[in-house]
């Protein structure tokens, strides 16, 4: 999947996460995480984001994650939505998404 613009999804409400993805001129994946539970779950969230990016075949992106202690399924949904928005894809292949 190739990103063509910035994609955002989510909110800053408690138990949610606001994710913003954009193209990375350096062609790598960079995750900028801010989380109120970073000490406890920071590593886990980074791994999860990396994992989802790999699944979606994204190899070049800057990902801003403003986390308000969202559950994994919420992070996954928000990140996938942000990525589709960034790629300009409006039809979601529901059956392929986990």
């Amino acid at each position: 999947m190739e990103l063509i613009r910035t994609g955002k999804a989510g909110t800053l409400e408690s138990s949610d996460v606001l994710i913003s993805v954009r193209t990375n001129p350096e062609n790598t994946v960079e995750i900028k995480l801010k989380s109120i539970v970073e000490k406890r779950f920071g590593t886990h969230i980074r791994e999860l984001v990396q994992h989802i990016l790999k699944e979606m075949q994204v190899s070049s992106a800057i990902v801003d994650v403003d986390d308000r202690s969202a559950l994994d399924c919420v992070i996954r949904a928000r990140l996938q939505t942000a990525l589709y928005r960034a790629a300009g894809i409006q039809k979601y292949p529901w059956e392929e998404l986990q």
């Binding site: 910035t6 955002k8 909110t11 800053l12 409400e13 408690s14 606001l18 308000r68």
Partner: peptide, 16 residues
């Protein structure tokens, strides 16, 4: 009540 978060989210998405 984290009202600031709600407001900033709203403005950020509107800007988006």
């Amino acid at each position: 009540e984290t009202l600031t978060n709600k407001i900033v989210t709203e403005l950020e998405l509107e800007a988006y």
